[in-house]
């Protein structure tokens, strides 16, 4: 992108880059440092030996996986519909969906409580999964629609001339091509579901259904606050997300590069 034929200019680029990236790294260093203060690795031992940890982990994973499945399936169907099929008043429906991007969770707490209670879903995982998915869908549909838009019509038409149905075209042609944007959808949905604090707190009553975001609570009392273990739990909570991102990084970047957002 930038011209750096000479070694010296390349070095200058590298230095500029490093200086600029330092402010982004320092808070991460402070976090790890804080988690090792006081009892040192003992903080991690203490967090890992919270008896409920595996349970919280499982619950969070369950919610994340279910949310990802719903979001992925609904997003792909809708994005294909919006990008490649005939719908009268398409932009109206699209905007109806996209406008929901602006809804913050905190606005929805009271109405969602009424809804979940009347559907008998309060205190089930659904009370968390459904709103999470509904809030995630507008963004992922936007991403995926733009991506599928970029798939040449000819590819799908070729399949249709061969006698395949729309569904087959979707299944055999579109879906395999959307793996990169699928990775992006998975990463964004995982972040949303895994990091969510408010919905599990309000809608899951049972102590056995608590999620990983409640973990720091074990080290914060009314009149006590063990910051070192809070930070250690933060690191442990964040690890699966970082790992998931690293695993999907390549696909993720490709997904966003095919003109996902423009």
């Amino acid at each position: 992108m930038l011209e750096s034929r000479r070694r010296s200019s390349r070095l200058i680029l590298q230095i500029v880059l490093t200086v600029l990236v330092i402010p982004f790294v320092l808070p991460l260093v402070a976090m790890v440092q804080g988690s090792l203060a006081g009892a040192g690795w003992g903080n991690y031992v203490a967090v890992l030996s919270v008896p409920e940890l595996p349970l919280f982990f499982r619950n969070s994973a369950l919610i994340a996986v279910a949310t990802i499945v719903i979001v992925y399936v609904f997003t792909m169907l809708a994005a294909f519909g919006f990008a490649k099929l005939h719908i009268r008043g398409k932009s109206f429906y699209f905007w109806l969906l996209i406008a929901a991007l602006t809804l913050p969770e905190v606005v929805l707490l009271t109405p969602l409580f009424a809804t979940m209670t009347s559907l008998n879903l309060y205190n089930t995982y659904w009370a968390v999964i459904l709103p999470l998915s509904a809030l995630q869908l507008p963004f992922t549909v936007l991403l995926a629609r733009n991506f599928i838009d970029g798939i040449p019509d000819e590819l799908i038409e070729a399949a249709r001339i061969d006698g395949a149905s729309t569904a087959a075209g979707f299944w055999y042609i579109v879906l395999p091509l959307t793996r990169p944007i699928g990775a992006a959808i998975i990463v964004f949905t995982l972040l949303g579901a895994w990091n969510d604090y408010l919905l599990p707190l309000v809608f899951l009553v049972d102590p056995s259904t608590q999620t990983i975001t409640q973990l720091p609570q074990f080290f914060v009392g009314q009149f006590s606050n063990d910051q070192t273990k809070v930070l250690a739990s933060a690191v442990i909570t964040a690890l699966p997300e970082v790992v998931a991102y690293l695993c999907l990084q390549r696909l993720f970047e490709r997904g966003l590069s095919a003109g996902a957002l423009k």
Binding site: A78, G81, L85, V107, L108, S133, A134, L137, P138, T166
Partner: peptide, 30 residues
């Protein structure tokens, strides 16, 4: 070249728009 796509967008619409817009309406009432 463009078969109808209502069935394809329906799940997302019913789900997202349904739940969220119902909530907005309810919020308006509250």
């Amino acid at each position: 070249r463009r078969p109808s796509g209502y069935a394809w967008i329906l799940p997302a619409l019913v789900f997202s728009v349904g739940l969220l817009y119902y909530s907005v309406g309810y919020t308006g009432y509250i």
